[in-house]
Each structure stands twice: as C-alpha cells, then as structure tokens.
Design a protein around this nucleic acid. Structure first.
Lengths: 222, 222
DNA sequence: ACATTAATGAACGGTTCCGTATAATAAAAC
DNA sequence: GTTTTATTATACGGAACCGTTCATTAATGT
C-alpha cells in the first residue's frame, strides 16, 4: 500500500537523495559576483544577467537560489555584513599604554573605513536603505555599533585599570570616534577617487594623534 | 550689400527679438522638479518624462534646456549647492559666551544635516560621485568645507579675543564638528526613516553639549 | 496679416532588462 | 540502462525609458 502510494502519487516534496545534487559552491560564487556588480554599479544599474555571467552561471540558476533581484541584493548585503563582523572581531592589542592603544584603534578604524570597497559599499547601501530599511540596520549592527561597543569596552577596561577617569564611556567613545573620522569622512565619501591616491588619508595620522591628545587631556587620571 | 546678405543668406544665429520669447521661468520649475525626482528616487530611477510631468512641461522642452539627463542632474546638483551656500552664509550669533556660541553652532549644524532633504541629497549624490567626481567637489565646496571655514573663523575670533587658546584652529574645528556629528551620523544615514521620528536626533542636545565641554576643557584659556 | 521662434503632444526606433518558459544536456542514485 | 533532479542555452512577453522627429499650436515682433 505504502509502496503503491509512493509510486503512484506524485510527492510534492522532491526526494533529496535522488537526481543531480545541488552544487552548493555556486551560491557563494553568485553572491560574490553580486557583491562586485551591486557595489560597483549600484542596484538598478546591475543586471541579473551580468551577475550570472560573472559567476559563470546560468541566469535561471540565479533565480533558482534567489527569488528576486531584491532578495539577491539583500543576501549580498547580509554576506558583506557577515564578513565585516568577522573582520571586526579582532581583539584590541593590549599591553601597551592607553595612548598607544587608542591611537592604534583609531588608525585601524581609518584603514578599515578608507578602503575602496568600504566606501562604495556605504554609498550604494545608503541609497537602498530608503526602499529597504532593514538592510540599513543589518549594516549598523555589523559595523558601526560593533565598533562603538569595542571602543566603549576598551575605555571601560582602562577605567577599571585606573588609567582613565570617565563618567559616560559610551559618550566618550562616540566623541573619540567622531574626531577620528572628522570632516575627512566627507572627503572620503564625496572627494576625488581615493583609489588614485597613494595614501588613503594623508592627514589621518595627525588627526588621530591630536584627537587622542585632546581626549586624554580631559580623561587622563593623572 | 550687407542688407542683401542678411536677407538672402540664412543666418545661423536666430534673431533674439523675433518670435515667441523663451519662458525663462520654466528652467527653474524644471530644476525644482528634477531635484524632487532625482533626490527621492535616484538618478537611474528617475525618468525625464516624470520630471517633465512634474514640471508641467513637455519632454522636448526639458531636452531643449538641458542637453542630456546627466546634464540635468548636474544642473540640479549645482542648484542645490547654490541654495546651500545661501543657507550657510548666515553669520554666527555673536555677543554670548564662547560656550553658548559653540553649542548654538553645533545645534544649528545638526538641525541642518538631519533634515530629510539633506539626508536624501547626500545619499543620492554620493552614488553619482563615482561616475562624475566633479559634482562631489561642488558639494564639498558648497557645504562641508564652508562649514569648516565658518567654525575655524569662529575659533580664530575667540582666540584673538582671548577667550580660547588654540594652536591649530583648523584641526580643532575638525575635531569639534566630528564630535558634533558623532556616530549618530551613521544612524542618520543608515538608520530608520527619520521622517517618522518626532525629533530628528533626540540625543543631539546631550552630544553637542558634552562635545563642547570636552572641547573647552582643553582649549579654555583660564 | 505675416514671419519667426517656443512649446506641446504623440509617436517612433532602439535599447535594456526582469522574470518565465522550453528544450536539451549533465550528474547523480538505482 | 532508467529515473530523477540540476543546470544550461535560448528565446519570449512585457515593460520602461532615452533621445529624436514631426505636425500642430501658442506667443511675440513687424
């Protein structure tokens, strides 16, 4: 009876172990191609066909894994955010002085933000946030808020260790990271192509150092 | 001879005083419609036809004044930058204490940046900078750099008046404006729609005040 | 009235692209 | 081999839109 049923009635759920297996590697390749196209040309300027071509995959395969163009974009954003999370999970270098630790944090932050891919990612993501607010929060949680937490934590430890005296470490962290970015953040987003410049932000070292100076002048315990 | 020439030979340059005059008001109306469409939907998502419809103007008329879609976009950006220049030419309120002046400057800056139109303008402009770097510089000159100069000037005056002691006022101005924007700048660009919130940035007052506190703690002369 | 230019409305050619459908091929289990 | 599923290549329907053309109407000077 059961044999007859399974043979005659078409099962709505396909048998997993039967037929040609899904090439699981293709999804990652598609996402990588999508990342390249979307964050270099923008959402509406990127075509599914060009993404498929870059991934060396049929267009139908793309639609097979991702229901629609918007879904593919959201998946690409999620993927980038996951990568960002991984990159930001490195621990702050301890052992050195608090000044050295803060300067190091600042320079790392600048190096991270001033990368070409980061600039373009921010640009094209910000536009799509208007149509899909969720991806904006996805980015905020993976990037900025995480950085803020890391810096706040760094400050908390310094306070506990008696190196600093801060009432509101979160507020202090926001001030410091704000100074680290400074107005150069606008040059980064609207200025000449940074890929042509040898050094991402030539004034970064000076800016970060003086920012830490100003910061420590108020918050140093001594 | 000259009469004969001007009468028989078709002059390549049309006679200005002849025929129906150009409706000069239409250009401004078109630019306003272009601003609305471009900075709400983005460049590639906006169609010339919808812009013409919004301006109650024929599509041909648009192409008559602006050679191409890119030219219209650039013109719209230039127009917005001119408006911005006008808005930023207001003098800083003098007479009060330096603390009050700085806090006032900061709150004005936040109010200016957190407007819906400003957020969308920045978003859509940043994307197009990749294809047309000139419009980015146009914006930088009209907005951020102008703000920076204004704040630097304010600090210079305070130094001359003996209210502050600052070596590098430009660096100090960058730090202060960086703190004023803080990480909230990222929430502004990637966070939930600000138009739904009652107050643009609820934490702005606290952030600006504590930023000025930190600033003055180092640069006060007393 | 007439000449001249501005502006409109509608249509067109050409292009791009989304999402789907179809027929053929490839890779696995049986 | 056969069956089953994944993937490809190709084509299609449909829509959107850029930039242009043409015939017509509107607004001014002489």
């Amino acid at each position: 009876m059961s044999d007859k049923a399974s043979a005659s009635i078409k099962s709505t759920a396909p048998n997993k172990t039967l037929g040609r297996p899904v090439d699981t590697a293709k999804s990652a390749i598609i996402l990588d191609a999508a990342r390249h196209e979307f964050f270099n040309n923008g959402f509406s300027q990127s075509s599914i066909e060009s993404i498929a071509a870059r991934a060396s995959v049929s267009k139908v395969t793309v639609y097979n894994r991702f229901k629609t163009k918007e879904a593919l974009f959201a998946a690409a954003v999620g993927n980038e955010c996951a990568v960002m999370r991984e990159a930001l999970s490195v621990e702050a270098t301890a052992g050195s002085s608090i000044r050295e630790r803060l300067v190091h944090f600042g320079m790392e932050m600048v190096a991270f933000l001033w990368r070409d891919e980061m600039v373009r990612f921010e640009r094209h993501l910000a536009v799509e946030v208007e149509h899909n607010p969720e991806i904006g929060l996805l980015f905020l949680d993976a990037g900025p808020r995480r950085l803020h937490q890391a810096l706040s934590h760094l400050l908390d430890e310094a306070v506990e260790a008696g190196e600093l005296k801060i009432d509101d470490t979160e507020q202090a962290a926001e001030h410091l990271s704000g100074m680290i970015k400074g107005l150069a953040d606008l040059e980064r987003r609207f200025g000449a192509n940074i890929s042509q410049a040898k050094i991402p932000d030539p004034k970064a070292k000076k800016r970060v150092n003086s920012a830490v100076d100003l910061f420590l002048k108020s918050y140093s315990k001594s």
